[in-house]
Design a protein around this nucleic acid. Sequence first.
DNA 1: GCCTGTATCGTAAACGTTTGCAAAGCGGTT
DNA 2: AACCGCTTTGCAAACGTTTACGATACAGGC
Lengths: 355, 355
Amino acid sequence: MARTATLKHLAERLGLSVATVSRALAGSPMIAEGTRARVAEAATIAGYVPNRAARALVTGRSGFVGLVLPVRGYGKDDPYLGEFVTGLSGGLAARGVDLFLAAVPEGQSELSVIRHIVETRRADGLVLGRTIEDDPRVAWLAGQGFPFVAHGRTLLPGLVHPWLDTDGAAAFAEAFELLYALGHRHIALMSIAEPMTFRRHRAEGLAAAAARRADPAVRIETVATPRFDRAARAAAVGRLLARPDRPTAVIGLFDGLALAVLQGAAAQGLAVPGDLSVIGFDDIPAAAQVPPGLTTFDAAVADSAAAIAAMLMRAIEHPAAPAETRLVVPRLILRGSHGPAPAHRTDKNQREDHA
Amino acid sequence: MARTATLKHLAERLGLSVATVSRALAGSPMIAEGTRARVAEAATIAGYVPNRAARALVTGRSGFVGLVLPVRGYGKDDPYLGEFVTGLSGGLAARGVDLFLAAVPEGQSELSVIRHIVETRRADGLVLGRTIEDDPRVAWLAGQGFPFVAHGRTLLPGLVHPWLDTDGAAAFAEAFELLYALGHRHIALMSIAEPMTFRRHRAEGLAAAAARRADPAVRIETVATPRFDRAARAAAVGRLLARPDRPTAVIGLFDGLALAVLQGAAAQGLAVPGDLSVIGFDDIPAAAQVPPGLTTFDAAVADSAAAIAAMLMRAIEHPAAPAETRLVVPRLILRGSHGPAPAHRTDKNQREDHA
DNA sequence: GCCTGTATCGTAAACGTTTGCAAAGCGGTT
DNA sequence: AACCGCTTTGCAAACGTTTACGATACAGGC
């Protein structure tokens, strides 16, 4: 197996200089069309592939885009990681860039890992997952002028930055309308304590849709538990469903919470959707597996990831360009966990004005 | 912000040559202890970090280890990817190596992606996931002498290669013993049609344990469906559980199958574990969420991944060393889906000799 | 006092690419 | 005939490392 061909080899074979060959391959306008064709042909038949290390050394660009994984955030709790990563990698590979993956070691902050990547120029750009409202990573990267795009908005005042987000507000408004049309008036939102940006948008979308109905019978309540605390989550669900004035429908901020509601309902002998309707968000695999099938939203993670890749490449190549943002609307997936509100049981301590 | 310090900067500041500084940092024995200390100190206070591109250019090693992700294999169906990747990345980072991730584009074979990585020397080593019995990736890489370690064994005749695998045989033997002690005699194995190596080992472990009991009442049957065909899977489960001589317990080759059984049982009004015991393998997050909690095995993916990282680094640094292999035993996690065999209902068409 | 060996350090080449600058060729103008 | 401008190509430096080899010094042995 011949050692991988280099520019010098091509140059010698063609009777040209290395510089000319390099420029021809790069499509430089200062090369005659004829020679460019000759070079291109010779390159393909020689199976030439540029040495990335050499190129990186002179251009100062690594040819890599980084993704950092906080162990805590993306652990067993992140079923969509596979989709996200494949979409990202695919989108980047099409542009000749590779995906570089960094885990956050135990006891280190994600920001410190990011700082290290930036300072050592290990990647030309970064993609950030799971942003929170005042995300320090976003603030720091924006301050550095380092190219990045966030999956999820932030609410940092006076700071515009590139992001792609799912339109959680629209989705939760749609969920409300679905439930309202089925007769549900008392709806609970299972939420989390952490200030993830998506929490705010989805909650606001739900509240806004409810307000638009201007129906005094409508009652929305929210219960929040720590994001990774399964026990607290289960306990809160138990309390919620055991109440005499329990809601007839509950929306989970994401599927994990909706599944917990399903489990809690089963534990208390409540039929879904007979006694209780449940709607989630994300469409994780378990949503299709657990009976009676969770009605939820498909966030199109793979497509989003590919779009993020494209946005990031633009940000890297045009650092001065204005920040690009993009909102994708999730698709409602109707399965078995939603149904008409139980007619015989209106909230005991409420006037029966919608009967 | 000062441009990242280089060897030349350090050399000038210390009144040494670049070569000496390089050697001192590398811990070469031909450097006096005193100067080494001086260099080390200067390097830390200057925040020196070697330029990977330059190093890669001269050493010919990229400083990256590759992981290729077939979209089909690791999609929504691979909930353990996050754990695996973080474990891998962590294990590699500790050794100064980074993880590089390649997705397999639609319409391309995984082998072609691997070939491309190897031929362009984009990575110094590869880790292979989801091996099958006669895995062409393993065969090709071994033929090339390219460093790699497989997560899962192969059954390629006369080919020893580095691998780390979970001891599925031991686990399924343990599952059998658990069920046998609870009185179960008729057990079904939900399996898949694809020749994944783990399928064989787990099935053999189950069969061997059953054989060891030498109990004529013991009956093991296997039903296999295509791995990614959810509909076929559900249909097969439905048929199995609807039979008058249905098994009293079923073991899923992995949690996805066990969950399908749980769902099928619920659909037919069978109580778990009252009427049917179910055991899975992998401990995916949904296993803890779905009622009554799936009894399964923890495959310790993160630890395995870290071990794979270590093995791969050894394989890269000592290409001539004999292939290293490692078997880790999964841990049984007892939850709610197993229980005593239903006493009142022995198989109708079978003698009641174990009553 | 000379030779040899050892410890320590410097010189310089090499890795493969990009790119500023010079050079060559050539047609057309004055 | 000299000059200019344009197109096309080559020269050479640079990116930051590693490493083979040579150089220097100093010690010990004769």
